[in-house]
């Protein structure tokens, strides 16, 4: 069972080719959707929600066809748009209750669920106040509650942490991680790569309407087996000498840091021995791993090159 899948999906707006042949199959779980502006992320989400019809190609969400089973899909997905999306005059409770009713819940169910999801996103007394006075973080959490009220199996989040302060982002990210744990698939479209790296198991990188790369984050950012960065304070020259004696190559050094290459896997002990011999203090040993940003930039570069 896939969360969603597309086969050769294209979408054209006039002369603009927003999607060109997207073929993708995404397993359930928390998935990051990355790409520069104009990469086609929003169009993809819009097609998956059945709000936009694709020009050609097939797409299915939770095994349902996006052309013919739109309403069935929308009963089982939740969407948190990037914009405010509030309805003036409604309180937080009223807003979530309303969206619950729109999804087809009965009065009682909707009321119960409203308070349940508002508890979940930690909107306390504020839920009875008009939403116009909410802060950015509260609005984001309210929008998340709105998307969760009918207990979807798949959640689309468009820039859920944009413009939020660090605490707000922290809260939002832990909510997303928890949802993944509860068995809800989440597609997070975001420009904030550190946030995606923190919560997502998989990423899809898009650019120019195509899928450039997709896969598990931990596989993309596997720590390097032999390349290490060493934080060392003490006699630098002695340290380098000791390292070289143990056939550890020093690649680069910059204020208090040494980039080294071990002779083979599993020989980190050589660095410790060197540090002990050199008599300084080893305060960090970090395997080199490519950050999501590097992976992302590399994917874009490959596209531009080709």
């Amino acid at each position: 069972m896939t969360a969603f899948a597309c086969a050769n999906l294209t979408k054209r707006y006039g002369s603009i080719q927003a999607l060109q042949g997207v073929t993708l199959s995404v397993e359930p779980g928390v998935v990051g959707l990355l790409g520069p502006n104009g990469a086609g992320k929003s169009t993809l989400i819009s097609v998956l929600l059945g709000q936009t019809l694709a020009t050609s190609g097939e797409a299915s969400v939770l095994g349902l066809d996006t052309r013919r089973q739109q309403r069935a899909i929308r009963r089982r997905v939740g969407f948190v748009p990037e914009n405010d999306c509030l309805i003036p005059g409604l309180s937080g409770t009223g807003y979530v209750y309303y969206t619950g009713r729109l999804a087809g819940m009965s009065h009682g169910d909707s009321m119960q669920r409203t308070h349940e999801v508002l508890d979940y996103v930690a909107l306390d007394e504020a839920r009875y106040r008009p939403t116009e006075g909410y802060s950015t973080g509260m609005k984001q959490r309210l929008k998340l509650a709105q998307a969760l009220v009918h207990d979807p199996d798949l959640l689309f989040l468009d820039e859920p942490t944009n413009g939020m302060d660090p605490q707000g982002r922290q809260t939002m990210l832990s909510l997303i991680a928890d949802l993944g744990g509860a068995g809800i698939s989440v597609l997070v479209s975001s420009h904030l790569l550190p946030d995606v790296q923190r919560v997502c198991e998989r990423v899809v990188i898009m650019g120019g309407g195509e899928v450039l790369s997709s896969g598990r984050i931990d596989e993309m950012n596997k720590p390097h087996a032999t390349l290490y960065r060493v934080d060392y304070s003490g006699d630098r020259i002695a340290m380098k000498r000791e390292l070289q004696q143990r056939s550890v190559t020093v690649l680069d050094e910059a204020n208090g840091r040494l980039d080294v290459e071990l002779p083979q896997e599993g020989t980190q002990a050589k660095v410790m021995e060197a540090a002990r011999q050199a008599g300084g203090r080893l305060s960090g040993l970090h395997p080199k791993r490519s950050s999501l940003e590097e992976t992302f930039m590399a994917a874009l570069q490959r596209q531009r090159g080709s």
Binding site: P223, G266, A269, M272, R276, P287
Partner: peptide, 12 residues
């Protein structure tokens, strides 16, 4: 670490 003969992958 050396005394125990352990292989450490990261210290931070």
């Amino acid at each position: 670490i050396l005394r125990e003969g352990l292989v450490v992958r990261e210290i931070s």
